[in-house]
């Protein structure tokens, strides 16, 4: 009887432990490279790197206007010959973590949005240092090797609300900062 109980307890502990372990299994889907997205969003335009660093005040202003947190003060941006912008941005949602490429015209109109990579996140994964490290690097390809690459997935509909919020934040970034930068 006591052996049975011990075996049961052992099993119980093993099961509990498997839930408690921070298992970093995730999947990622990559679509376009930055270069491909540039060609699609700004065809026949030469793009020049034009990164921007937001000041604390600018970030606060964008946060107030868009009502969305500005996580990264560094804007990974390129400029087209006619004054338009190509921005690579990251959006962190409840279930997902997405790299986006956005084209904004010289007049501030969003010309196109392409998802570059999509990573499914789970629970406290976002808080994990390795997970966060990628937000400071320009190239996420190294990180991607850790993820499982999945070809085709069919599942419940995932809302793109966080991307919409991210675009709203970039719109306000353009109107309060980027539009004031001379070509």
């Amino acid at each position: 009887m006591s052996m049975l109980r011990r075996r049961f307890l052992k099993g119980l502990i093993a099961t509990a432990a498997s839930f408690a372990l921070p298992i970093q299994v995730s999947f990622a889907k990559s679509y376009l490279t930055i270069e491909q997205a540039q060609k699609i969003l700004w065809p026949e335009q030469k793009l020049t790197p034009a990164p921007v660093d937001l000041t604390e005040q600018q970030a606060d202003l964008i946060e107030d206007l868009s009502d969305i947190r500005v996580r990264n003060h560094h804007i990974n941006s390129w400029r087209s010959e006619d004054g338009g912008w190509f921005i690579v941005d990251q959006v962190i949602g409840k279930h997902e973590n997405i790299d986006l490429a956005v084209a904004i015209s010289a007049e501030g109109k969003v010309m196109g949005i392409e998802v570059l990579t999509y990573r499914e996140t789970y629970g406290d994964q976002i808080m994990h240092p390795k997970w966060r490290a990628q937000f400071h690097g320009k190239d996420s390809s190294e990180f991607l090797k850790l993820d499982k690459q999945i070809k085709n997935i069919s599942g419940a509909t995932l809302s793109c609300r966080h991307v919409t919020d991210g675009i709203n934040r970039l719109n306000h970034t353009w109107s309060s900062v980027l539009s004031k930068i001379a070509l």
Partner: peptide
């Protein structure tokens, strides 16, 4: 083959062989 996502956790994927041109999946885990 297509992977079916059947639960919220990222590893909850199951491979199914397609039986027709269209496939719709529905669930409420999101």
């Amino acid at each position: 083959q297509v992977s079916i996502k059947y639960a919220r956790r990222p590893s909850a994927l199951k491979a199914l062989t397609l039986r027709n041109t269209a496939l719709a999946s529905s669930g409420s885990y999101y």
